[in-house]
């Protein structure tokens, strides 16, 4: 995964980077319903299903490759990555389902209402906390990719843009 920036085509890496930034920000907002309010919390979480699906589609080749070779020859880092990704998927599913079961805004809008269940509430809180830890591990395992991609698509263009802008201003 470290060399993904070099391996993948530029537009795909760029898309992946901005999508990941979007998911990260959305995750932080949804993790704190006190700041966003319950309506944004629920609608944003629902929208995240689509973005997470795109995130998985963009990494599809890697997923297929490691799934095929998981029991055979796979590097230690890829194996850990794969396991963490599965745990994240399972935990994400748990967050979504428990959240759906205790929904106060989205489901009532659709005319659906489940009876209040204490167990789902507990499960939702617990899986969200585990999700935070797992996302931290997921981010850490891809840290070098994040640093390379940020340098390539954000920092370097900005650094290049500033002197060019100064030259333009000076010529005027």
């Amino acid at each position: 995964m470290t060399n993904e920036v070099q391996k993948n085509s530029t537009p795909q890496t760029k898309t992946k980077l901005w999508l990941d930034v979007l998911i990260f920000v959305a995750f932080l907002v949804t993790m704190d319903p006190h700041s966003s309010g319950i309506a944004i919390h629920e609608w944003l979480s629902l929208a995240m299903i689509a973005t997470l699906t795109i995130h998985l589609l963009l990494s599809w080749d890697w997923i297929v490759e490691i799934s095929k070779r998981f029991l055979g020859k796979v590097g230690g880092q890829n194996r850990i990555n794969y396991i963490v990704n599965w745990l994240l998927f399972i935990d994400g599913t748990m967050i979504m389902i428990s959240g759906t079961m205790i929904s106060e805004v989205v489901l009532p809008v659709m005319g659906i209402q489940f009876p209040a269940d204490f167990a789902w509430r507990r499960l939702h809180d617990m899986s969200a906390n585990i999700g935070l830890l797992l996302l931290g591990i997921h981010t850490a395992l891809h840290w070098s990719w994040i640093v390379i991609a940020f340098n390539k698509y954000l920092i370097r263009p900005v650094v290049r843009w500033i002197p060019a802008r100064q030259k333009e201003d000076a010529s005027i």
């Binding site: 319903p33 006190h34 700041s35 966003s36 309010g37 319950i38 309506a39 919390h41 205790i102 106060e104 009876p115 209040a116 509430r121």
Partner: peptide, 11 residues
């Protein structure tokens, strides 16, 4: 069976 909104939603 309801919830205190402020606990979860910040209202």
């Amino acid at each position: 069976g309801g919830e205190v909104r402020g606990e979860r939603g910040g209202r």
